[in-house]
Design a binder for these strands. Structure first.
Lengths: 199, 199
DNA sequence: GTCTATACCCCGATAGAC
DNA sequence: GTCTATCGGGGTATAGAC
């Protein structure tokens, strides 16, 4: 039994039964050892939990990196949005933990390594948007602003769905995600009207 | 000491120290009684927690209802978006609990009363959108679709901010919320381009 | 309606033997 | 590197006296 066995069991336990199920005693039992043995590989429960969160960011980044295979800015843009959705639907518990408040893991703030991973995910969207602005597909706005707007919409819609607020199956939600994304990108106002809304 | 005293203390405790601090022993200690006394007013801890969640929806609905005071569809629309933001910033912990997964409270599904309150909040946005479509401020799309898109964006942006991902103070965030809302409503694509994105 | 006492669960973490 | 034993804490909930 080594550090990796503990890590794998912790991920499995978290995905299956939630974060509160990831306890030293429970982990040890499932691994066929006793709790004190775990402390030879991890200094504390907190250290294990942070490894699980880190894994969530790694998986998410992996999906987004796959989107780089697109051959045009537009296709890479589409693949990034699609990859984010795929990650959330394939790993809802990992998606959830990415946005969990720090106190969930008994720490006051995230270590630098996790903050960096989070920033990397944001940067990925950022680059896709910048490309699309560059080739004239999107308006010449600040790429970071546009990226934030798109991220907010995607994250909001996904978390509303995962929370169970929408009465639909996964296939239906995929369609809703695309249609709603279209509305965000192309606007819902009638041009020349509603000039001062939200201004 | 009556049921209302327990409820008030539970809300205070939740807002100040989080849901895990709301235990029967802790509540009793803060109220100057012993734990078993609480069971004369509440059957279980779970029943107390659900009352706290219910309060969150009530407060949110209260803010949105205040937006009805606007004199035009556009103003009521703006006030609804503003009220939602005000609620989230004034009561971040109550905002958080509205979207918490059910297992947080030790229940498998929300009771009907809470589902209804949630639906009421959604209906409020829905009505504001329908009005704006009616007077030609928004495109003649399905009001529920448009409402969901706006809700997703607002919720996503707020939860990203409350999660601490954005390095800015509250005043700055209010501006970002408005600007991002503008982009969602008016679109970010260059008309006639990006026809097939997200389609 | 509140108390004491209690049954019975959970947890993180450490000391020291092997 | 794993064990047993243990410290010291948390929790829900009930029984029965007052």
């Amino acid at each position: 039994m080594d550090r990796n066995d503990i890590f794998n069991q912790a991920c499995e336990l978290y995905v299956g039964e939630g974060i509160e199920a990831v306890s030293m005693r429970r982990l040890a039992r499932d691994l066929g050892v006793t709790a004190p043995a775990l402390y030879k590989h991890y200094a504390s429960r907190e250290e294990i939990l942070l490894d699980v969160v880190s894994e969530a960011y790694r998986l998410c980044g992996e999906q987004l990196t796959g989107g780089l295979l697109g051959s045009t800015p537009e296709e890479r843009f589409r693949l990034a949005g699609e990859g984010y959705l795929n990650f959330a639907l394939a790993h809802p518990k990992f998606y959830e933990v990415m946005y969990a408040p720090t106190h969930t893991f008994g720490v006051a703030s995230y270590p630098e390594e996790l903050t960096a991973r989070m920033a990397g995910v944001g940067q990925s969207f950022n680059d896709r948007v910048r490309e699309c602005i560059g080739v004239g597909l999107l308006q010449p706005l600040d790429a970071q602003d546009v990226s934030l707007t798109l991220w907010a919409h995607a994250h909001g819609l996904i978390s509303i769905y995962l929370r169970g607020c929408l009465q639909m199956d996964e296939a239906m939600f995929r369609q809703v995600y695309h249609e709603s994304g279209w509305r965000v990108i192309h606007g819902m106002a009638i041009p020349q009207h509603m000039a001062q809304v939200s201004a």
